[in-house]
């Protein structure tokens, strides 16, 4: 009976395929065309405009620096948090629930939260002042304090984006039977050796997913940066936004969008290549 209705699965899948096709693939092709054409003729003019812009180099540098600073810290923190919570018997769900709160906050709201902490009249300055560490309001988020601005943005991004990494890592850790760690312990492996030689290799798939997802999202960073640094800290998506809205130049914005997509794809391929997941070597 089921053999005779082999078209049913396709029918059920069809709406999602049509939906994504219309609202994803079509705009993607339009964006690609927009980026590599000028008045309907193929052209590299938009790319040239993008590359010659004063903020282009800085936005690439900033985006990469931020990604390089934020992603490894997030992975390390997620691993530490996941390992710690796996040792907890009672209250595990509550701890995970609290840790995942930042997931429920939009990135712009997260940026505003950190703005209220780091701005001139913010909580940080109030605290430092009351402790007598500073004598007057100190600015952290201006173009004159690039290091403080970078650190502020990085901290806000780490605070906002670690939860999703942690969820993937915790799911991966739950997949590792405890007997593997116990066997390693019996045969004399220290806690650190158990982590590096047993746990890490066994959560490779989760690690790979977390790295890809988090890195792609890091290249798309925008709202937190915009809230904290405005144009003092140009990033790629911010430039795309500016070309689109301030300059009303959709073609250069499209060129940025294509560039971000290429970088994300390259990062994904890099992780797929470097962190190979061999199903033969998994439980």
């Amino acid at each position: 009976m089921t053999q005779n209705r082999s078209w049913i699965p396709y029918l059920l899948i069809l709406p999602t395929v049509v939906f994504l096709g219309l609202l994803f693939v079509v705009p993607l092709i339009q964006t690609l065309w927009l980026a590599v054409s000028d008045n309907g003729v193929p052209s590299l003019a938009n790319m040239q405009t993008m590359v010659r812009d004063i903020n282009f180099g800085r936005s690439i540098l900033n985006t990469f620096l931020l990604t390089l600073a934020v992603v490894p810290i997030q992975i390390a923190m997620a691993l530490a948090m996941g390992s710690m919570v796996s040792k907890v018997n009672g209250g595990r769900e509550t701890i995970l629930w609290i840790w995942t709160i930042p997931l429920g906050i939009s990135d712009l709201a997260a940026g505003m939260v950190w703005l209220s902490i780091l701005q001139n009249t913010g909580y940080l300055n109030t605290l430092l002042f009351s402790m007598g560490l500073i004598e007057r309001q100190t600015a952290w988020l201006t173009y004159q304090t690039p290091v403080a601005l970078f650190v502020g943005i990085a901290i806000a991004e780490i605070w906002r984006g670690t939860a999703i990494v942690m969820i993937i890592i915790v799911a991966g850790l739950n997949q590792v039977p405890k007997e593997f760690k116990e066997a390693a312990e019996i045969f004399g492996a220290s806690p650190w050796t158990r982590f590096t030689r047993i746990t890490l290799p066994l959560i490779r798939p989760a690690l790979q997913s977390a790295l890809i997802l988090r890195t792609v999202l890091a290249f798309e960073v925008f709202a937190v940066v915009y809230a904290l640094g405005g144009r003092n800290f140009p990033v790629l998506v911010g430039e795309a936004y500016n070309w689109q809205n301030q300059n009303q130049n959709y073609s250069v914005a499209a060129a940025y969008a294509v560039l971000i997509m290429v970088i994300s794809l390259a990062a994904t391929l890099f992780y797929l290549k470097v962190i190979k997941v061999d199903p033969e070597r998994l439980p």
Binding site: P177, E179, F180, F187, G188, A189, I198, L282
Partner: peptide, 26 residues
């Protein structure tokens, strides 16, 4: 002491050689 577990707990990411060698390596 050494132990053999019900579900074997043979490390899937190591060859049989490395599995058998694990205790000695430690």
């Amino acid at each position: 002491l050494a132990m053999v577990f019900q579900n074997y707990a043979v490390f899937p990411h190591m060859t049989v050689y490395e599995n058998v060698a694990f205790g000695l390596r430690m």
